[in-house]
Simulated assay, not measured.
Amino acid sequence: MSKQKTKNVQHKHDYVFGKKNYIVMAIGIAVIALGFILMAGGGSDDPNVFNPAIYGFRRIRLAPTIVLIGFGIEVYAILLNPNKAKKE
């Protein structure tokens, strides 16, 4: 009887993106979340009372700009070539 040798085969997982891509994506998601957090608020508890804070600079200009920057970071993360940085 012959014994079959079992080889330790390690399967290499091929991910779509590299580690650097995922790090940049996480940064982009954090920036988008920050933009939405800045956009929140400005409402009123009483529906008969108008709160003009909803039209402030932070909610109309700053927060949407930060969200768009976050989306730009996401596009960059997707287009980033993880193999370019590796030197083999």
Rank of each mutant, 00 (worst) to 15 (best):
M25D: 03
Q10D: 12
G70V: 00
A77M: 04
N8Y: 08
F36Y: 13
N83L: 08
D46F: 02
A77V: 01
A33L: 15
A33C: 12
A26R: 03
I73D: 04
F17L: 15
D46V: 02
M39Q: 14
H11A: 15
Y22C: 01
V31E: 09
M39W: 11
N48I: 00
K84D: 05
A53F: 10
N8L: 14
A40N: 15
P47F: 01
S44D: 13
G70C: 10
G28H: 11
P52K: 10
P47S: 05
I29M: 14
A53E: 15
P82V: 04
I73S: 01
R59M: 11
A85F: 12
D46K: 05
V16E: 13
F17I: 13
N81R: 07
A33W: 05
G35S: 11
S44W: 07
I23K: 10
N83V: 01
G35E: 05
T65C: 11
N51G: 10
L79K: 07
A77E: 04
K84P: 02
A85H: 07
V67C: 08
N81Y: 07
G56A: 13
E88I: 05
L34G: 04
P52D: 10
K87Y: 03
Y15I: 02
H13N: 05
G42F: 07
K20G: 04
L80H: 10
